Amino acid sequence: MAKKRKKSKSAQKGAAAATDELKAKDEKKNNNLPKKDAKERKKARADGIVMTLYPAVLGAIFGFASLSLFGTGIPAEGSAGMAYPWYFVITLVIAITFYVQKFTYPYLKINVDEFKTKDWFYVEFIAVDLWLVSWTLLLN
Rank of each mutant, 00 (worst) to 15 (best):
M1E: 12
A2E: 11
A2N: 13
A2H: 15
K4V: 12
K4T: 04
K7W: 06
S8Q: 14
K9T: 10
K9P: 00
K9E: 14
S10R: 12
S10G: 10
Q12F: 05
K13L: 12
A16W: 05
A17W: 00
A17K: 13
A18N: 00
A18E: 04
A18R: 15
D20Q: 13
D20G: 11
L22E: 10
L22C: 06
K23N: 14
K25M: 09
D26Q: 13
K28P: 03
P34D: 02
K35T: 06
K36Y: 09
D37A: 09
D37V: 02
D37I: 08
A38Y: 15
A38I: 09
K39S: 12
K39D: 11
E40Q: 13
E40C: 01
K43D: 09
A44H: 12
R45F: 13
V50T: 14
M51R: 13
M51T: 10
T52H: 00
L53R: 00
L53K: 07
Y54S: 08
P55F: 01
P55T: 07
A56L: 11
L58T: 05
L58Q: 07
L58H: 01
G59H: 03
I61L: 12
F62S: 00
F62Y: 09
G63R: 07
F64I: 13
L67E: 10
S68Q: 11
L69G: 06
G71V: 03
T72E: 00
A76E: 13
G81A: 09
G81N: 01
G81D: 09
M82A: 04
M82Y: 14
M82D: 00
Y84H: 05
Y87F: 13
V89L: 11
V89D: 02
V89K: 11
L92K: 02
L92G: 01
L92H: 08
V93G: 03
V93P: 05
I94S: 13
I96Y: 04
I96C: 11
I96S: 14
I96G: 02
T97G: 08
F98R: 08
V100I: 14
Q101D: 09
F103T: 08
T104D: 10
T104Y: 14
Y105M: 00
P106E: 07
Y107D: 10
Y107C: 00
L108D: 01
I110R: 01
N111E: 14
N111S: 13
V112A: 09
V112F: 04
D113P: 04
E114P: 01
E114Y: 06
F115I: 08
F115W: 10
T117V: 10
T117K: 09
T117D: 03
K118Y: 06
W120E: 06
F121K: 03
Y122K: 15
E124T: 15
F125Q: 03
F125W: 06
F125N: 03
F125V: 00
I126K: 02
A127E: 07
V128I: 15
V128W: 03
D129L: 14
V133A: 08
V133M: 13
S134L: 14
S134Y: 05
L137Q: 09
L137W: 11
L138H: 02
L139H: 04
L139T: 02
L139D: 08
N140V: 05
